[in-house]
């Protein structure tokens, strides 16, 4: 059974073929890693799946529905949330405001300014999530005051609050200290236990190989292999292309 099916996906930027006939699958309830050398096209693949960049050819089927004509903002409502390689918190807002933006789209219209808005409904959930990652004291801090690792955590929490079934994390472990990395790992495992499917781009191999059920390997925009972490780590093609002998 497949939650996400990427088939023959391609995208060029000028003369550079960033993604070239990429195909892979993501099983529901799995943690799937997406690895490859820098410039392999991993982030572009994320951008194609979430339609931040339109694909030139190929298919992206999520729960059987083709996503290529769905605008980026509607992808979230279909059940796919994502983080970005560069942290994209709203640094002009507080942590609470950053998280509330992810909670609901009910109040996005201007008319909500004149109707009762009961955002306290979400507050209990926000507080519980912040406690889970040890950031409970930062609820009303400006997002600009957070450290790099804390910002990564809040960005992941924003994904969690979107109630998506599939969460795409772009390098959640990059630049994160060992203590926070354990928190990130705990959170990912908990989300997975709760039935969420995760697709994770990561260069931190020990971290990814610990948590992933399957790993997709890319090289030069192309699919190299998809298998269990154990098999990927010993495959000669992967060793040559990425992991080193």
């Amino acid at each position: 059974m497949t939650l996400l099916l990427v088939e023959n996906l391609s995208k060029s930027f000028g003369g550079v073929r960033a993604v070239d006939g990429l195909s892979f699958t993501v099983r529901p309830g799995s943690i799937t890693g997406l690895i490859g050398p820098n410039g392999a096209g991993k982030t572009t693949a994320f951008n194609l799946i979430t339609h931040f960049v339109p694909a030139e050819s190929g298919q992206i089927l999520y729960q059987g529905e083709d996503l290529r004509r769905v605008p980026a903002h509607r992808i979230v409502r279909k059940g796919i949330a994502r983080t970005f390689q560069q942290i994209r918190l709203f640094r002009n807002l507080t942590v609470r405001e950053n998280l509330l933006l992810a909670c609901s789209h009910t109040y996005d219209g201007w008319w909500s300014s004149f109707s009762p808005v009961d955002e306290d409904l979400h507050l209990e959930r926000l507080t519980a999530l912040l406690e889970e990652v040890g950031l409970q004291d930062y609820l009303d801090h400006s997002a600009a005051e957070l450290s790099y690792g804390q910002s990564k955590l809040v960005e992941i929490l924003r994904c969690v609050l979107q109630d998506a079934d599939l969460i795409l994390l772009d390098e959640p472990a990059a630049g994160v200290n060992p203590t926070l990395l354990r928190t990130v790992e705990r959170l990912i495992r908990r989300l997975n236990r709760d039935g969420k499917t995760l697709l994770i781009i990561e260069h931190h191999m020990p971290f990814l190989m610990r948590i992933a059920d399957e790993v997709v390997v890319m090289e030069n925009g192309r699919f190299l292999m998809q298998d269990t972490p154990e098999k990927v780590q010993t495959d000669p093609r992967v060793l040559e292309a990425y992991l080193g002998a």
């Binding site: 979430t50 931040f52 980026a72 903002h73 509607r74 992808i75 979230v76 409502r77 949330a81 994502r82 970005f84 994209r88 918190l89 709203f90 640094r91 002009n92 807002l93 933006l101 992810a102 789209h105 996005d108 924003r158 979107q162």
Partner: peptide, 12 residues
Amino acid sequence: HDEIAAKGLGKD
């Protein structure tokens, strides 16, 4: 502040 991030949260 960041239109792309807002889109990423499902905002039109």
